[in-house]
Computed example of a mutant assay.
Amino acid sequence: MSVFVQSLHETFERLGRIETRRMFGGHGVWHEGRMIALVAKDTLYLKSDAGSAAHFDALNLPPFTYVRAGKEMPMSYRLAPADLFEDREEAARWGRLAYEAALRSGQPPKPKKARKTAAKAVTR
């Protein structure tokens, strides 16, 4: 895990606990079981939707895109503002916007993994 990804726990400390997990050559960032951000090449992108797009548009923050069949495909994650890394309250505000967008997406929360010790106790 990169130093950048590890630093996100501190960045979002006022939002609450986050979890990070490797995925697709980058990392996903979860809060309360919902994916609120992704990290690609040590760049943070926050979950967005029609309800939060104006905040990103006001700062001219582009979407994360990938290429599929020679065509650029935008995703529902937008570049995080640089101020977020300097101000924990600002990070919490943007984190809440991303969390709210994740809630509106209709995707179910990520199921919590049972701890191995708890699973062993059940099988005994």
Rank of each mutant, 00 (worst) to 15 (best):
S76G: 07
P109T: 14
A80I: 10
E72V: 12
A114L: 12
W94C: 00
Q107F: 01
A80G: 09
A121S: 04
D87S: 08
A114K: 11
G70S: 04
A82K: 15
R93N: 01
M75W: 14
K110E: 14
E100S: 05
P74S: 07
E89Y: 05
M75I: 04
A119D: 06
F85A: 08
S76A: 14
P111F: 08
G106Y: 03
K71H: 10
E100N: 08
L97G: 00
R115T: 08
G95C: 01
Y77R: 03
M75G: 05
L79T: 11
L97S: 01
S105C: 04
T123I: 12
R88T: 09
P74C: 10
P109W: 01
E90Y: 00
P111A: 12
D87M: 04
M73Q: 14
Q107G: 05
A118R: 13
T117F: 06
M75V: 10
G95K: 04
E100C: 02
Y99Q: 05
Y99L: 15
A114E: 12
A118W: 10
A102E: 06
R124P: 01
A118I: 15
A82N: 04
P109S: 07
M73C: 11
G106M: 07
R124M: 04
E86L: 09
A102V: 12
A80C: 12
T123F: 07
K110T: 09
A119Q: 04
E89I: 05
A92P: 01
R115F: 11
E86I: 06
K113M: 05
A114D: 06
T117E: 08
D83K: 02
E72D: 15
K110R: 15
G106K: 05
K71V: 15
R78A: 12
R88M: 00
M73I: 15
K116H: 10
Y99S: 00
A98K: 03
P74N: 04
R88C: 01
L79V: 06
A92N: 02
K120H: 07
F85H: 13
A82V: 13
Y99T: 01
R96V: 13
D87V: 04
P74F: 08
P74V: 11
W94P: 00
T123M: 09
A102P: 02
M75S: 15
Q107H: 10
K116R: 13
M73V: 15
V122S: 06
P108T: 12
D87Y: 02
M75E: 05
E90V: 12
L97R: 05
R88Q: 05
A92Y: 04
L97A: 01
R124E: 10
D83V: 05
F85L: 08
P111T: 09
Y99M: 02
G95R: 08
G70K: 13
W94M: 03
Q107P: 00
L97H: 07
F85V: 10
A98L: 07
R124H: 07
L79I: 12
E90G: 08
A121R: 14
R96M: 10
L79A: 14
E90L: 10
P108D: 11
P109Y: 02
Y77C: 03
G106T: 08
R96Y: 08
K120R: 11
A82H: 11
R104T: 03
L79Y: 07
K110A: 07
R124L: 09
G70W: 13
K116W: 14
F85I: 09
G70I: 09
M75Q: 11
R115A: 14
R104I: 09
M75D: 06
G106L: 06
P81V: 04
